[in-house]
């Protein structure tokens, strides 16, 4: 037990795990463009994709998940140890800033875990007046597609929907301007004008997004604090 604890609180363990993580990522980065199974990886939750893809393509991802699990444990144990350890002459901020970074990292891990299990992405092609039902029963009906072009290049596009649920309303979506309907995001991905105007719509649910954002903010806040203190220290 004592040996396991010293292993989990060791920075050497963290370094070995980070090294392993890098090696597995290199393997994944080489495999990814080569294997056709990766073409579907962004269309479903990671854990569902892992079930259907061959092990020869996914082994490195299983490795990454295992390494990240131990690394997250190592991060938590190291942070706790660092917080309870008495350090003389070290300011409180200098002591907690790396732990804020670690907390941010853990939030990002939770985000990926939640998204890998529960996210979903649906792709629909709409023509004007065609309809589709969202998971909660709300009906989306495409009313109109607007676009503008400059020198033959598409510069803006938008899709206007009628939303038929408890009450009826209009919904306008465009690239970078999605709409949130009953907890799911409605995204305009692409439009085509010939032979008839059509819009490729994505319905997306990303439960890890808020965790990832919180983690990112904490991570950067901790890093800013650490840099400020280190610069002050060297002055």
């Amino acid at each position: 037990m004592k040996k396991l604890l010293s292993l989990l609180t060791s920075i050497r363990t963290a370094n070995i795990l980070l090294g392993l993580f890098i090696l597995l990522l290199i393997a994944g980065a080489i495999l990814m463009p080569e294997r056709p199974s990766f073409q579907r990886i962004n269309q479903m939750p990671l854990f569902s994709w892992l079930k259907e893809a061959p092990l020869s393509d996914t082994w490195w991802l299983y490795g990454e998940i295992a390494v990240l699990f131990v690394l997250a444990l190592n991060t938590v144990f190291c942070s706790i140890q660092s917080l309870i350890k008495k350090t003389q002459g070290k300011s409180l901020l200098l002591k907690i800033s790396p732990q804020i970074i670690h907390l941010g990292f853990c939030f990002i891990m939770v985000a990926h875990l939640v998204s890998s299990a529960y996210s979903f992405h649906l792709f629909w092609v709409f023509q004007e007046t065609s309809r589709a039902k969202l998971p909660d029963g709300t009906v989306l009906e495409l009313e109109r597609i607007n676009y503008s072009a400059e020198r033959g290049y598409l510069t803006s596009m938008q899709a206007i929907f009628k939303l038929k649920g408890k009450d009826e309303k209009r919904l306008t979506i465009a690239p970078n301007r999605p709409a949130l309907v009953s907890g799911v995001g409605v995204y305009l991905k692409q439009i085509a004008l010939n032979p008839v105007p059509r819009a490729l719509i994505e319905i997306s649910y990303e439960p890890g997004a808020l965790w990832a954002l919180t983690g990112g903010v904490l991570f950067c806040l901790g890093t800013v604090l650490l840099i400020g203190l280190r610069l002050k220290q060297s002055n």
């Binding site: 990671l46 994505e202 997306s204 954002l213």
Partner: peptide, 27 residues
């Protein structure tokens, strides 16, 4: 490292608005 981390976060926010996810599996 700080600027790079910020860039990844802003990239995630942009991807969320543009593609409905903060992370895409690409090389």
């Amino acid at each position: 490292y700080l600027l790079f981390s910020l860039s990844m976060i802003f990239g995630g926010i942009w991807a969320f608005y543009a593609w409905g996810t903060y992370w895409l599996w690409t090389p």
